[in-house]
């Protein structure tokens, strides 16, 4: 970065920005840290539920994680979730990218109509029964596709991506058009290589949505072998509030508080794994490489 010659004003600016980030960090991290501590605290130490639980416990316990990981359905549920995520991200991008690209063409005849067409279903939520009739009508009950298809195009993602496409220098596309390139060629060879940040972002949004979606799974999946991870977590976490009559201790090792806390980190697993890698594309100046290369 060559623009580091600091004027006094810029130094103040830098100081304010950095301290602001540190402040955000603290505000974000303290409660999360507490949740993490809760997830590794053995049950004997759990008496103190107040905010005092910021220091690591005397003895770390992975019981809560073990409880999830050794659940008889854990492996199959994780596998189902991975499948759903892969199909969801794939289908989501496959449908979102061309739609967003078409919407971003400023002089397309019928552009307005197309926008309206996309926005209407975004604004009007028909509710449970009308959607259920369609999905089961397609014969999707008890198929993983039933939880993939309903969320495959998210209008918010379409608009965000379209917006990014619109911001790309128009001259690049024009140049390709003058060279006689087809639209698909322009999309793949000119637009997409410059759009990594938004592709990753939208892909991430889809991935997180599918990883954590339980609603459609409750509705459309009955077969135990098809249940994804969020259903497993939900069953475990809600048991505390609904089973008064537990005579058998299903979860003897870890307390509810720890299980709840541990579930947070399972829910955010794809993010935790993928985000550090994505971050490389999230630094100032990414575009310049694309433009020149």
């Amino acid at each position: 970065m060559g623009r580091m010659r600091k004027s006094p004003g810029d130094a103040v600016f830098q100081f304010v920005v950095d301290n602001y980030l540190v402040l955000v960090l603290l505000v974000m991290v303290i409660p999360i840290w507490r949740v993490f501590m809760l997830s590794v605290t053995p049950q004997v130490d759990l008496a103190d539920r107040t905010f005092g639980m910021l220091v690591p416990p005397s003895k770390w316990s992975l019981a809560a994680y073990r409880q999830f990981l050794t659940h008889p359905s854990f492996l199959i549920a994780t596998w189902n979730s991975v499948l759903i995520l892969a199909m969801g991200v794939g289908l989501g991008l496959f449908l979102t990218v061309p739609l967003a690209y078409v919407l971003s063409i400023r002089n397309l005849p019928g552009r307005k109509l197309l926008h309206t067409f996309i926005l209407i279903p975004f604004l009007f939520n028909p509710g449970l029964i009308p959607s259920y009739l369609v999905v089961t009508g397609l014969g999707l009950y008890d198929r993983l596709l039933a939880v993939v298809i309903p969320g495959a195009i998210n209008v918010y993602n379409v608009f965000v991506m379209k917006n990014f496409f619109e911001g790309l220098p128009e001259e690049l596309k024009e140049a390709a058009r003058i060279d006689g390139a087809g639209e698909l060629y322009i999309l793949f060879k000119v637009v997409l290589p410059l759009s990594k940040p938004i592709l990753l972002t939208v892909g991430l949004f889809y991935g997180v949505h599918y990883w954590n979606d339980f609603f459609n799974a409750i509705l459309y999946l009955g077969d135990a072998r098809l249940q994804p991870l969020p259903i497993l977590l939900r069953n475990i976490l809600q048991a505390a509030n609904f089973n008064d009559y537990v005579d058998i201790n299903v979860f003897s090792e870890a307390r509810m508080e720890s299980l709840k806390a541990a579930s947070v980190f399972l829910a955010s697993l794809p993010m935790i794994l993928v985000y550090p890698w994505i971050q490389r594309y999230f630094t100032k100046g990414t575009l310049s490489g694309g433009l020149k290369g």
Binding site: V102, F117, F124, P126
Partner: peptide, 21 residues
């Protein structure tokens, strides 16, 4: 041509439920 698939998707998955609404 590029918009055909997404539009078809919208018709079935988003507009049919609206019809059912």
């Amino acid at each position: 041509g590029m918009a055909i698939l997404p539009v078809a998707f919208f018709l079935v998955i988003r507009y049919l439920p609206l019809w059912n609404a």
